[in-house]
Design a protein around this nucleic acid. Structure first.
Lengths: 185, 185
DNA sequence: AAGGTTTCTTGCTGAAATGGCAAATGGGAG
DNA sequence: CTCCCATTTGCCATTTCAGCAAGAAACCTT
């Protein structure tokens, strides 16, 4: 057994607990029996892709981050004001069907972990340069460029270069299809 | 079998071929028998993490890029339209339920006629000053301000002052309900 | 086209892992 | 203590596995 895999189960369990879900709940979402999930989390069952892929979807993490997690730098204190190096200004009231934010991405030194979640996201770069990792793509968006994508695809967004990037972000969690050229299914 | 997994084998094979390696070579690197690799590539064997992780190392790709299908380019570039003193840059593909434009309003001398049509519109002022006549309201929006309104209300939009105004406009003809709202930067 | 070499596929085997029901265990609240 | 919910585990018919060795296919070179 590759030793990276030993941590997969515990990580799944940790994420599940952080969401306050029970075995049965997550097992139902991922369409597996609670016992299977239990054994997977406790390492008594091999972590197969068939098991892991539905889980990553519901847990909102990428496969690689389960298998090869980024360890937080212990020297860094938990930021208090900023969230994940972003300054977020909501432009729509809470509860809107469409959420809009102006986000300033501070320059980062580490590439953040790609995430997945339900919904669609639309981006417009007001200033700066933005790096968008989306599935197997690696794009740099500059001022005036726009992108939209299915957020169920693993994605990471961050400023590239030494200057912050100002971005207008429109996020729709309903899964309303904002564009038509996805090649899913 | 999850259908994402069907493509894993062929992708491995494609990468191996692109490197000009034989089954035996890659199998030796990843410490598995050629037959196992053959069956994995041709989908006759389940893609397990034990198999995949050593392969990703030698193939130089991430797990997610093997499992996640490639996504279309999310960037949008469409020709700019000039009309009625506006420079309109569509940011979404035609036919989207949500249309997004970057509009530059040139300074005008005459106040345009208010118009009505179905849908909702959402505005964000990137630069300049924008005058919004909406029903009996008369608003001036400046950089960083946002507004959204029902376009069935008579409305006119134009730059105020001597400088052009750059606006991001999101228009939804489906009639998604949003209420009028402005926010400071 | 023939022969030889490399590359790939497949039949076969005991061994190992799987899935999920049902029963057992654990642990907190009353 | 007892109930209840979450989790673990015993069980076992069934499936999958690993890799050797033989067979098939592709690809040379002459």
């Amino acid at each position: 057994m590759i030793d990276e895999l030993k941590q997969v189960g515990p990580r799944i369990r940790a994420i599940r607990h952080s969401k306050g879900w029970t075995l049965d709940q997550l097992a139902a979402m991922a369409e597996m029996s609670p016992s299977t999930l239990s054994r997977l989390e406790s390492g008594k069952r091999q972590a197969s892709l068939e098991l892991l892929i539905p889980l990553t979807r519901h847990l909102g993490v990428g496969l690689d981050s389960l298998v090869t997690p980024s360890v937080p730098d212990p020297r860094v204190r938990r930021p208090v004001i900023r969230k994940d190096g972003m300054v977020i200004a909501p432009l729509t009231p809470e509860g809107s069907p469409v959420n809009t934010f102006k986000i300033t991405y501070e320059p980062v030194t580490e590439v953040p972990e790609p995430r997945v979640h339900d919904g669609y996201e639309w981006l417009y770069v007001i200033s700066g340069k933005l790096r968008l990792l989306l599935g197997d793509r690696d794009l740099v968006l500059t001022r005036g460029e726009a992108a939209e994508f299915d957020t169920r695809v693993p994605h990471a967004i961050f400023a590239t270069g030494s200057r912050p990037a100002q971005v207008l972000s429109i996020f729709n969690s309903d899964g309303v299809r904002m564009h038509t050229h996805t090649a899913e299914e």
